[in-house]
Amino acid sequence: MALQSKHLLGLDGTTREDIVTILETAKSFREVLDRPIKRLPTLQGKTVVNLFYEPSTRTRISFELAEKRLSADIVSFSASNSSVKKGETLIDTVKNIEAMKIDMVVVRHGSPGAPHLLSRALQSHIINAGDGGHEHPTQALLDMFTIHQKLGSLEGKTVGLVGDISHSRVALSNIYGLRKMGARIILCGPSTLIPREIEKLGVEIYFNIDEIIPQVDVLNILRLQLERQREALFPSLREYHNYFGITRERLENASKPILIMHPGPMNRGIEISSDVADSEHSVILEQVTNGVAVRMAVLYLVAGGRSETN
């Protein structure tokens, strides 16, 4: 098993077949996570470098655990304690790291296209762990994995992406991935947080949350970046919560149980109320567990889909 692409730069450039392969592979890794011994020798001898140029807790830990579960040698690097501050260019930094003989780079960076830049400059496999407001492919893959796990398929399901769509890498990767898998996508948020011409990606746009709740199978509630208020994109957290916050009362209009998802970290009481986040339909923590399995699958497949032991 292998992917058609040498890297995972985004779901925009990933084929449906590769997405299916990743999700299928993740299933078996997910089973491994429930075993008492969670370690596999799959990437023994491979070296993975985690380059985090932006703060991250869960994505970084998730990748590191996935790498450890596969027995890779890992090094993690964050911008705060790096030579970045000494004025070295990104290209120079990564070329120096690559000169130490590594196999894979997992990169999180504030600039859209940073993983693409690395893929042109390096020989190593590149996995995008979030590039600015562009893509976050492993997040979307774990979201899709979770939906598939809970609902049995993605085809024909209606997924509502709610909130701060503008410059949301989670939203964009979900749109690219879910569209390829045949899901229907509804975006809902304040008009100032919906980027221009996004409907051309084959999504529907609503501004009234109560209109979408009866239609959706899944609500993926995006984190509201609080600094957006300063940018005059919405007037107050109070108004945001009143019109776009997902609350138990709102969900009473649902025609069927809705899967509640959130990529984290949550602003409880703003985009999601605590009773919804902690409800029986919330799969937020399962997303996190699945994230490790999906990232194991991605690491394994991007490395060539060959286990060192067999």
């Binding site: 562009h134 964009l172 996004i198």
Partner: peptide
């Protein structure tokens, strides 16, 4: 430029 491509690329328009 702000438009469809900036939306697809996640770049500020």
């Amino acid at each position: 430029h702000e438009g469809f491509v900036s939306t697809c690329q996640g770049l500020h328009g």
